[in-house]
Design a protein around this nucleic acid. Sequence first.
RNA 1: CGGGGUGUAGCGUAGCCCGGUAUCGCGCCACAUUUGGGAUGUGGAGGUCGUAGGUUCGAAUCCUGCCACCCCGACCA
Length: 493
Amino acid sequence: MSKGLPKRSEDYSLWYNELVKKADLAENSAVRGCMVIKPYGYSIWEKMQAELDRMFKETGHTNAYFPLFIPKSYLSKEASHVEGFAKECAVVTHYRLKNSEDGKGVVVDPEAKLEEELIVRPTSETVIWSTYKNWIQSYRDLPLLVNQWANVVRWEMRTRLFLRTAEFLWQEGHTAHATKQEAIDETVQMLNVYATFAESFMALPVVKGVKTPNERFAGAEDTYCIEAMMQDGKALQAGTSHFLGQNFAKAFDVKFATKEGGLDHVWGTSWGVSTRLMGALIMAHSDDNGLVLPPKLAPIQVVIVPIFKSDEELDSISEKAKEIVSKLRKLGVSVHFDHRDTHKPGWKFAEYELKGVPLRIAMGPRDLENNTIELARRDTLTKETINLNEIEIDSFIVAKLDEIQTAIYQKAYDFRTTHTTEVNSWEEFQDVIENKGGFVAAHWDGSSETEDKIKELTKATIRCVPLDQKEEDGKCVLTGNASKGRVLFARAY
RNA sequence: CGGGGUGUAGCGUAGCCCGGUAUCGCGCCACAUUUGGGAUGUGGAGGUCGUAGGUUCGAAUCCUGCCACCCCGACCA
């Protein structure tokens, strides 16, 4: 572990890459574009999973698992779907290797060519809808509310740890409904689940919105999204929820007998969040000293670092530290007592800051004497001395963790507020996108051509049409054509 | 996939132009002194120089292919 992180202000991109590696979250693997998620990084992901999974179950969903491989023919059943994903699919063509002729390894056995090639899933709509066909006959089988936790592969040209990798972990919910309205309600409900999760667990404020047709999921009627803002002013799509209409039901012939005795295609939704959330979490809060984790997702919420010279000193500190540990554990706080004598206190301080541990307790001889501890906050980098005679340490810590959770959210919220700019002219638009960054709320005439042109000229895309968009007559920032409301533009990850 | 760059010990690097088996720092191991913000000293271990070929008496160094990573484009969760 070498010391020092690149400065966030000097090279944001380098700062991010180094932070991910130095904080032991993930590293590049031997396979191009793929990453190894290390134990510390994975435990954050597990915390995300646990909460999301709880929320999915609470809204009536159950987990299942569908195969990694999809017959090639399935993909082409929904026209826009195949168009959207064809360019980034990994394909399995053979099922056997054999020793090479020169004896130096193995080669693909040309005899073992698959009858039908298999696609490694880039998403599972097709294999799932082909299965749903058999599961759904009657309105009594609906709604069907299924989620799966899985890995998917999209063969990306340029990859970055967590933000875009060839293989990533995610969950994908796939539901089927009897009515259009019910499916739309489901789509919106899951968008709200994502938004709630992002805001109350990741401490990440998000804008809920709808994607323009250009940015829509391949095969969806409507794509809803949550958009977050990173500290460099770039936007990041943190989750999507799709109203699929009857597109996949038609493509895979999924019909049900209605209550009234008719026969109709079912209405579908799909929704997902991925390990990309890890990227969002890192980029939204962290600083030049390392990660800043919201307490609700921190694998270690409190670390206790003893300061000692002799074994006797460590023993007496340990006694006290262990009392605190057990009190905190009773309240469900995850606490780690780092009594290693192989590293010095200063080293540990820096290490746990790098890893984003929200609270650090230091206890030394001086503290023993006075019955105090030193409490340091990761988010503000402030320290205070707590007198244990006066303060209930366990409830104090719990309240402090709560305070940190709120403070981190508020900081990100304020950043987003100051980096959301309403603009009314093209000059202003270009200036803000180029120099200030962040979200730009501007009028748009609703055409794909204009959207493309703006992207070409400024690299900014329409992140979403916010769900809470105000009706307001205005003129498109580029063309001057009529517009009914502002949409959010930004450069994005 | 196009344009540019990089690859040398676990990590970061010097050496490459001008060919002669590799420099320094961090980390690691041992010992001593240290311990309230990444300790210091002394000694020590650790190398297919990304990889496969080629040129050469001899290649980290020159040539070719391949692989990976980074930056900029096109594409994207």
